[in-house]
Design a protein around this nucleic acid. Structure first.
Lengths: 191, 191, 191, 191
DNA sequence: ACGTACGGGACGGCCCGTTTGT
DNA sequence: ACAAACGGGCCGTCCCGTACGT
């Protein structure tokens, strides 16, 4: 029972993991179902068995990231102060980006992905709420633009090809960069 | 005379312009040679006559941007003070990005493009020099990461799809965002 | 069971057979994948499903010939006397050529084919060993050249377009021609 | 006057020479008009100016070889003795082959070439006469087949890629191989 | 939970040849 | 004696999806 159920999702996860690996190396557009099948030593049919279409595969890959993003947003939105709220979001976003390091940068930068995800019923709303939280720090176009620069800059830098830093260092520096861009002061942490 | 010389390159330029328009609307990967041909009412052969490969078309499109980038870098490198130098580069980069607004954002975000351009003999060197100028403002990984966040954030934000601001406003805000990210103070201009 | 196993390779074999027929009529270079598809009433995609590239199709076609050639060479190499060894190889080669009559001549004569097969890891070695056996009959360049003349002459003549002789007659005459070229006397067969 | 005429053919000859060079390296089928134009630093139009079609270019290339072959055949046909006649032809053919070494082997082996040349009004007749002279040495199919083996073997071996022998040595060995194949004894030369 | 076989279609590349200039 | 510009067509490759088996 449980074993069977676990096995079923296990098998599905193998495809997702392989897809992630290939996405980071060849981008989404440059990864065919055939490549994923080859990576696992199976045929394309096996892929189609788990994901009805290429699009469904993509959404399955980003699902956990979306979940994490929603949690971050909801947590932030519960905070009253604008600065504290923005800082909380920024921290969560940096965590998210660093956690899914290589994958994130390749997804945000792929027009084919954004095209598909733009129509994603949940994600598009999340991104709006996310941007709003950061943009609210400053009024007008300036706030909007700086929010965009911060988010895109952080996400794009994640793939630290050239850089040789551990995740914690990367996280700290990205957070600092984002705070500066948005004009946030580091909050005094618990006492 | 002059007419003949202009005419010679004129035809080629028509293809480049059409390509730019399509790239901004459908990204590089999403633009086929057939689409370019259709746009101009000719066949693929005509495209192939001017650009022997898809790659050559791309490099022809980015050529003017590279030239402008080089000028900016060289101008900046001639300045002694680190901050003034970085600020000069940042200003030039923002100008470049805003000038080629829609095209720029679509290029930096396309993995297929970066793949091709990474091997570009000139561009790769320029990017290194550019990053170095910004990274020198602060030592260590922090400088490196903030330089990356600033450059990627600015380039990625250029396509102000959602935003409704004129170029000058956009330029000012992007510059301000970059300066903050890098910790630069606006230089007191000549007065 | 057996039916299933046979069926599996059966479909693939249909393409190979069709390819052989077309190769002999239009040469390898003159045979497009579309022609093969048309011959079987399917699309190019079906061809691509069985052979991922044109090159793989070619190697699949020549595979059985390579196997036969290897057997011949190994059989010959087991013989001690130089003349007997060369004669054994020659006999086997003539058998091979006559057996795959029309195909053989069209393959050895196609520069595109030789280009591909020259890099074939197995075949290139076999050809060396084969030539060596014949060249050893006489020392120096003379042996080398006569070995080449014999092999190329026999292979090239196989396609007896103009000639109207049965296979046995052809075999005998080719063997005799080869023996003369190499200076071999017909061995006294088991009385 | 004369200068102009010479210049005109000179220019034409440049294209032929370039074509020969490329044919030997990439075969006839693998050589496009574009490649020839590139080799000379001109455009395809220049090629078309001298040769109305690809076919005319090919015939222009082989013209001198045909002339030489005709001379050889006519010289041989004037001799009475069958053996002496065949030997004279063989000698002339070997000379021809060695002289146009690399080109010859690539032409006889290219199906696209033979397809075009088979319809050549002069050449097809020459080849028939040539084969007949050699085949007459022995009656029946045997003579026919041995003639073919000799001619094809010699032509195919010409491109002595692997071999490192000077032209004279190659000529001698090819002649010896041909004589053996046909069962000819070296004629006593002018005592 | 897969494999086999295939369709329909697009893509980039390259071909040869022609028209129209200079 | 060339160059510019282009048409029409084919090629090999690859794509995603599906129908059908087992």
């Amino acid at each position: 029972m449980a074993t069977a159920a676990v096995k079923a999702t296990d098998s599905r996860q193998r495809f997702i993991d392989a897809a992630i690996g290939l996405f980071t190396r060849h981008s989404f557009a440059g990864t065919s179902l055939q490549m994923i099948a080859d990576e696992l030593g199976v045929t394309k049919s096996a892929v189609h068995h788990h994901f009805r279409s290429r699009e469904e595969l993509l959404t399955s890959v980003v699902e956990p990231m979306i979940t994490q993003l929603r949690t971050t947003i909801e947590t932030a939105e519960a905070i009253r102060g604008q600065h504290a709220r923005a800082d909380r979001l920024l921290t969560g976003f940096v965590d998210l980006v660093v956690h899914h390091k290589s994958l994130m940068s390749v997804l945000v930068s792929d027009p084919g992905v954004t095209e598909i995800l733009r129509t994603h019923p949940v994600l598009s709303g999340l991104i709006q709420r996310q941007t709003k939280i950061l943009a609210d720090v400053e009024p007008g176009d300036g706030g909007q633009i700086r929010a965009s620069v911060a988010l895109r800059g952080i996400a794009g830098t994640a793939r630290s090809d050239a850089l040789n830093v551990d995740d914690d260092t990367l996280r700290q520096h990205l957070l600092e960069a984002g705070r500066r861009t948005l004009g946030l002061r580091a909050p005094r942490r618990a006492h």
